[in-house]
Amino acid sequence: MNVLEEWTALVCRELGIDPEKVDRDMVLDLTKEVAHGVARPAAPLTAYLLGLAQGAGTAAPGAVDRLVELAQTWERAPREPE
């Protein structure tokens, strides 16, 4: 078992989460796209917000794909004036 697997198992135990329900690669892919397309600090925040939405039952079925798409097109997205 590698460090990431050990850490994931420990955190799942602490939070009462079934580790079989954790799609680690999906989360890592999402955070990679957000970190590179938006900003590094946006990656953990996005993962946290997704987790909140999942827990609340408000995340759409394609939420991860949509967030990846938003991160990949972030530079091209029109900005509102500050």
Rank of each mutant, 00 (worst) to 15 (best):
E5Y: 00
E6G: 15
E6T: 15
W7G: 11
W7N: 14
W7I: 15
W7E: 11
A9E: 12
A9N: 14
L10G: 14
V11I: 13
C12D: 10
C12N: 08
C12E: 09
R13N: 02
R13S: 06
E14T: 07
E14R: 06
E14V: 11
L15G: 06
L15K: 08
L15H: 13
L15D: 07
L15R: 08
L15M: 10
L15S: 07
G16E: 01
G16Q: 01
G16D: 00
G16I: 05
I17F: 09
I17P: 12
I17Y: 06
D18G: 00
P19V: 01
E20F: 08
E20K: 09
V22L: 03
V22G: 00
D23T: 01
R24L: 07
D25Q: 01
M26N: 03
L28I: 12
D29Q: 10
D29P: 00
L30P: 15
T31Y: 01
T31D: 07
T31A: 04
K32H: 08
K32D: 05
A35W: 12
A35L: 02
G37S: 07
G37M: 04
G37P: 14
R40L: 13
R40C: 13
R40S: 13
P41K: 01
P41V: 08
P41N: 02
A42L: 12
A42E: 11
A43S: 12
P44H: 00
L45H: 04
L45A: 06
L45W: 10
T46S: 14
T46M: 12
T46F: 11
T46R: 11
A47Y: 05
A47V: 06
A47N: 12
Y48C: 05
Y48H: 02
L49H: 00
L49A: 03
L50M: 03
L50Q: 02
G51T: 04
A53W: 11
Q54M: 06
G55A: 08
G57N: 10
G57D: 09
A59E: 05
A59R: 09
A59D: 02
A60Q: 08
A60W: 07
P61S: 00
G62C: 06
A63K: 07
A63N: 00
V64D: 03
D65Q: 10
R66M: 06
R66H: 06
L67F: 11
V68G: 03
V68S: 07
V68T: 14
E69I: 13
E69R: 15
L70V: 06
L70C: 04
A71W: 15
A71R: 11
Q72D: 10
Q72Y: 13
Q72L: 15
W74M: 09
W74R: 05
W74F: 15
E75F: 15
R76G: 12
R76N: 09
R76S: 09
R76T: 04
A77G: 12
P78G: 12
P78N: 11
R79I: 05
R79E: 03
E80G: 13
P81A: 01
P81N: 03
P81Y: 10
E82W: 15
E82R: 15
E82A: 09
E82Q: 13
E82F: 15
